[in-house]
Design a protein around this nucleic acid. Structure first.
Lengths: 212, 212
DNA sequence: AAGGGAATGTCAATGAATTGACATTATTTT
DNA sequence: AAAATAATGTCAATTCATTGACATTCCCTT
């Protein structure tokens, strides 16, 4: 593998390529050119080739790309060839919704535990997982080799919990709390700031109303 | 107002400024310089000034920015001075979680209805809102002046429902379905593709493991 | 009231990302 | 087997975004 740094702009596009290629594969399509993919995905063919070439050539000149092979390779790049153990911190509405969402499991994301600090919830089951007290979080992470913690707790608690998770050896945090976490740079954080997303939407709506 | 196009890169940063300024305001801090904000937010002071200047000068030379004023102005830019009427399409786990999330209401996002096509759910209440059949969606949008539809339905249904919403006069779609919607360009779409986000996280985790 | 200090607003320079162009190479056809 | 075709891989050009530098302007103190 080439070890030059890949820009996050490129990484951000990989899941979308992966999704479209998966759909093409399911439709039984075996090969595709960057131009055809360009038409479907509404991005330039040049960008597609440029993006893929960051990881070495996946295609064959004069032929195009083999859909299944390309799909598999992008999956590997995204780390989807291995399974990942996750825990959810915060058994509120959002935490429960994510725990119940089956599609993640199909991609190798395995929910191993769910934690909360409300005693009223302890022992309650969500899809075969019992809600556990937060005190047991660290031990659980170590014993069960948890890679990823999903933070669905209020922002006031999030920073402290993140620190504890880092101490316990977590590798990545999927952060739904509306706060920026400050963790060592070898710990990956992916933020999902829903209200930020909603504000972008209202900006674009009102911008359009004001005749732009 | 200046009507030159503002890049989405800038727009994407506005909610974060807004959040930090809100916190500063709550702490009773009245003024701040781009350099101080830079230290807190870990972005360059130059970028902060450049970003704000897209909308005309908010600051005073030699003094800095008035926190409250800046907060209000960015709120206006983001369209948060008006309230927005929303409906949720899809009363599954995620739809219910969003309906129950109180913080949106505080910012003027008013959930007016929730729809599903499962008759077993009709009439069931989520926070004072009865789940309604999807057939009533279009009429409801028109009668209640709904701006924004939140799509929390499977991707197979999402494209068709989006078209119906556009016909009914929706202004924006907050799309949680894992599919790209194809709508007229005067209709705004903001995608929240959770699995894409999770894949970015696993990419960064595995990239780090492979000693990059 | 005037001068010094401080921080903005803005211009220029740099850096990053995207697009365009084309030589190269594999495939397919004759 | 050779020529024609097709589409990649890659280089160069362009566009866009970020950073740096500084003159200008405003506040605040004396």
């Amino acid at each position: 593998m080439d070890n030059k740094e890949i820009s996050q702009a490129v990484i951000g596009r990989l899941p979308r390529y992966f999704r479209y290629l998966g759909e093409l594969k399911d439709e039984g399509i075996e090969r595709i050119s960057s131009q055809e993919l360009s038409d479907i995905m509404k991005v330039t063919a040049s960008q597609i080739r440029q993006d893929f070439n960051n990881f070495g050539g996946f295609g064959q000149q004069g032929y195009g790309y083999k859909v299944e092979y390309l799909y598999e390779e992008i999956g590997k790049i995204l780390g989807l060839n291995k399974s990942h153990n996750l825990i959810i911190i915060g058994a509120g509405n959002l935490g429960q919704a994510l725990a119940n969402y089956m599609n993640f499991e199909r991609r190798g994301f395995l929910f191993k535990g769910i934690f909360d600090n409300d005693p009223a919830l302890y022992g309650r089951k969500i899809r075969s997982l019992e809600i556990q007290p937060m005190e047991e979080m660290e031990t659980f992470v170590r014993v069960n080799e948890i890679d990823i913690a999903v933070l669905t707790i209020p922002k006031t608690e999030a920073v402290g919990v993140a620190e504890r998770l880092v101490q316990a050896g977590i590798r990545g945090i999927w952060n739904f709390a509306h706060v920026d976490l400050n963790v060592p740079k070898d710990i990956q954080v992916e933020n999902v700031h829903l209200s930020d997303s909603l504000m972008k939407l209202t900006y674009n709506i009102s911008r359009f109303e004001n005749g732009d």
